[in-house]
Design a protein around this nucleic acid. Structure first.
Lengths: 238, 238
DNA sequence: TAGTGGTCTAGACCACCCT
DNA sequence: GGGTGGTCTAGACCACTAC
């Protein structure tokens, strides 16, 4: 019995096919840039239906490992674009999942004229008012996140009457607005004096900043800036 | 003709089915937490094969909008976990895609004993040497990214002989190592004196930091810290 | 134990797009 | 024009798990 060249493991499911193809790519049996056999031939080789091959290759293509084009066939990517997938957590869950106690405090709630940048993000006309909500979120009573949010009152009039002491603005929006699309932006900023005071750190500390804008078809809903207390980091595997 | 209740658009493909289900979720025809009909019934309702329904619902489940369990059926997620997908760019491409000129400079290349934290990340024994490579990347001759990299010489001996003046370490690794898995971490740090000097900014500036560790099955390959010059941000839509 | 989703199969047609 | 992947279908069996 040959113990060096292990026999091909039994291939039964699309995941087995996927793993086998992944092995061929990793071990450069199919080198970067090379065209691989077409689906029909692979189906014959592996003894399964073309649909199964298709599912495996489609998954590899979703991951960026191969590139597929009709007629041109399938190639191993020369520069596989690695994708990092982050779950956007709900603050409360993020804190409670670590076993900490969540609390929050609404520190500002005002109708006012948003600064130019926010107004354009929310597609508001000059002079339009928006709801300005500032919330401080705590983990075990320690400042964790400072949330500076503007909400489009034309799209979401209900937020003004909402009882935001018993539920925070983010969760209210999740519960009361239909699913929306949006953009998200990560950056680093030095803490302003206000940031520092609220988060219990010193002015100039490097803060991890998340900015989100969400909208529903053409209507903007909310623009929010999240400033995390020092020490925050986002982690994932790829 | 009824212009208010638009007639159901022609449903032909799994994407049409997907869009229709998305509409029902958005408009709360299927409210959060509610169980939706099973695949067989939906197939009858929409007049297509169960496979097609399955594909549509599977896609919605991948996006976190519904949760599916055998026997229990499919429910609309109560707290849809939004996922943000970022492409991890190769520095050169990132810079050239903006129309800027890319260049880089290898500022350190030394075999040395890595600090404790790096050693444990690379799973090195005490006293083992690793390759320490520091690279400064420029966009239009302006400092853009400072890369501090440690490479496991037991896994990747070839990097020591590589001509890293004509190709940077990251690209050499991509071309010479099989596809690997890894972890990635985003955070914010105040620029150290060294960071600041290299990136042409002032000490204490908030820097966007990416730390990556990559490995191949059980063997570590490289641990790298990327410090981006101020102004950098990661952006995506969700 | 029975209902549900997960998957495989074989065959078919089609859209795309390289040559 | 023709080869390739993309998808649909109908039917089948299976794995999981709530009941």
């Amino acid at each position: 019995m040959n113990l060096i060249n292990t026999p091909t493991p039994e291939i039964q499911s699309w995941q087995d096919v996927h793993d086998e193809f992944l092995r061929r790519i990793r071990e450069r049996i199919w080198p970067p840039g090379e065209q691989i056999p077409n689906e029909a031939d692979l189906a014959i080789e592996l003894g399964c239906a073309r649909t199964t091959i298709n599912r495996a290759l489609r998954t590899l293509a979703d991951a960026g490992l191969v590139e597929r084009r009709r007629k041109a066939g399938t190639r191993v990517s020369l520069h596989p674009v690695r994708k990092a997938i982050f779950d956007i957590p709900i603050v409360r869950q993020e804190i409670e999942q670590r076993g900490d106690r969540y609390s929050c405090s609404l520190i500002l709630r005002k109708k006012s004229k948003p600064p130019r940048r926010i107004a354009s993000q929310l597609k508001l006309d000059a002079g339009d008012l928006a709801a300005h909500l500032e919330t401080l979120h705590f983990a075990n009573d320690k400042p964790y996140l400072y949330e500076d949010r503007w909400v489009n009152l034309q799209t979401v009039p209900g937020i003004w009457e909402a009882d935001l002491d018993s539920i925070n603005a983010n969760e209210w929006l999740i519960q009361n607005m239909p699913l929306s699309t949006g953009s998200i932006n990560f950056s680093a900023e030095n803490a302003s004096k206000k940031d520092a005071e609220l988060l219990g750190t010193s002015e100039g500390s490097a803060l991890f900043i998340v900015e989100r804008i969400t909208w529903l078809s053409e209507q903007s809903i909310t623009a929010v800036r999240l400033a995390y207390a020092p020490g925050y980091h986002l982690h994932t595997t790829i």
